[in-house]
Amino acid sequence: MQIKINEQNYTLDDHLSAGEVRDRIKADADLLIVNGFPVSPDTLLRDGDLLILIRRGEIPGADELDALLTARHTPGVHGVVKQSTVGIAGVGGLGSAIAIALARTGIGHLIIADFDVVEPSNLNRQQYFIDQIGMPKVYALRDTLARINPQARVTAAHLRLTSANLSEVFGHAQVLVEAFDLAEQKVMLVETFAARFPDRPIVTGSGMAGYGPANTIQTHRVAGSLYLCGDGATAAAPGTGLMAPRVGVAAHHQANAVLRLLLGCDPVSEKA
């Protein structure tokens, strides 16, 4: 049988178990993953299987890292997403969480843009750290993403996005994520990008303030290739703050919508 072990091709006898193969190839591995799912050593392997052997606590070399980082992905996903470019406009509570989710998913190229610097009141919901206070958010986030997945290419644009520069900054983005704070900025982004690139999907966030039920946050298709994640109504306002749980729910709706679009699936329904 032909199987792949840590991204290398092997031809092995039939009817071998994952544990027997582990003993031959990487005897000290204590985590065995077949086709994206951890298995026991006595699991029989079949032709075409993808086997990942990991020794817990060992930091892999660069050549193996890509395979090991994506060992739990559904097979077939990584090959598509690593060829993809996604733009993220604004890296506050939504954008920083979306960027991290997409880097973990193995998106090949992320373009992140924001003018702001990390300040203490961001830390209640945004994916930054105390030792990053004062840094431009795009550079702080680029550092964090490199610690998670050095294979993900990150283009960091420290600037204020306007209708004049937006299409240039995100010219290579197949999908654009809107992750701004102000409603007027959200509208500006959608109008500008849709006018320039009418066929490219835009995934927006609207309505995730407060601590209302998480279940009111949904993904909707609101126009041709325009998607909206959120409850559509709960604005950040005096008396209604932005907090990590609901902002995180909305951000991950957006990240999952991006992933589904890249894989050719409808973000809203089960159909492919």
Partner: peptide, 24 residues
């Protein structure tokens, strides 16, 4: 936005108006 005043609606048109709220 610049074209909202120029475009006049006709019978059978489809219009979607998506209201955005702040926060992110």
């Amino acid at each position: 936005r610049q074209r909202l005043a120029e475009i006049h609606l006709h019978h059978g048109d489809t219009l979607e108006v998506i209201h955005f709220v702040g926060g992110g």
